[in-house]
Design a protein around this nucleic acid. Structure first.
Length: 227
DNA sequence: AGACGGATTGCCT
DNA sequence: GGCAATCCGTCTA
């Protein structure tokens, strides 16, 4: 197996890179949006200092997808998934964790993208406190995995229905670098029992923040296109 | 009304 | 690698 590429150390972002995210970017098919969101930034404005992280792993879910919460139709819980693009859909996982999706597609579609891992950019101390990790813990542990990133970013059920494109909101999605990130891979989604064959998980290869069995290293089913 | 099990995580052996 | 923790939406009776 090939050696992992070392991913570049985290760099502070220029103000120009915090440009608002165009809603059009979220209007396509869930898979396409899941890929596009890699490299975008999530900003939590509720803490004493700004908390910023870069999206490095996502999964696509659609209403025609047996693995999706929207598969059985529009319900009170999944209402945000059926709303216009850019709304937060938060659900509780295994009775313990919060996980956050971004609705995409058109109003009524029931499509969303699950955020699975982030690369911490700013406000690491806040994240560390929320995660209750020892100071010695590596930053890559802060936002690795959907439950962990929600905790680090202060996400709870109260954010369901929140417009993440609102530049004045407590939690915002903004555009990262104008150029799409390199090393985008796709593979099977994690932890699901239905539609396991669909390779609708997207991540940055070799990024230490990526969750899953081997931190973004190619998975066994991650597509025959990779060596 | 009661049972089931999951888009997870971290600690156990 | 195994498994407990712990809520609630959905399914079955």
């Amino acid at each position: 197996m090939a050696k992992l590429p070392q991913h570049a150390p985290t760099q502070p972002l220029a103000a120009s890179q915090h440009a608002p995210m165009p809603a059009a970017l979220l209007r396509g098919e869930a898979r396409r949006v899941a890929r596009r969101l890699l490299g975008a930034l999530l900003v939590d404005a509720t803490a004493e200092e700004s908390v910023v992280a870069r999206i490095v792993e996502t999964e696509a879910y659609s209403a025609r997808d047996p693995a999706s919460h929207s598969y059985r139709g529009r319900t009170p819980r999944t209402e945000a998934m059926f709303g216009r693009a850019g709304l937060a859909y938060v659900y509780r996982s295994y009775g313990l964790h919060w996980c956050i999706n971004v609705s995409c597609g058109e109003e009524g579609d029931g499509a969303a993208v699950l955020l699975r891992a982030l690369e911490p950019i700013a406000g690491l101390a806040v994240m560390q406190r929320r995660r209750a990790l020892p100071a010695s813990a590596p930053p890559a542990r802060l936002c690795r995995g959907p439950g962990n990133l929600a905790q680090a970013m202060g996400v709870t059920l109260a954010y369901t229905g929140l417009d993440l494109l609102d530049p004045a909101g407590p939690l915002r999605m903004v555009r990262g670098a104008t150029q799409p990130p390199a090393g985008v891979r796709c593979g099977p989604r994690v932890g699901i029992t239905r539609a396991v064959d669909k390779a609708w998980r997207y991540y940055l290869a070799g990024n230490a923040n990526v969750s899953g069995p081997r931190n973004g290293v190619a998975l066994s089913l991650a597509g025959r296109s990779e060596a």
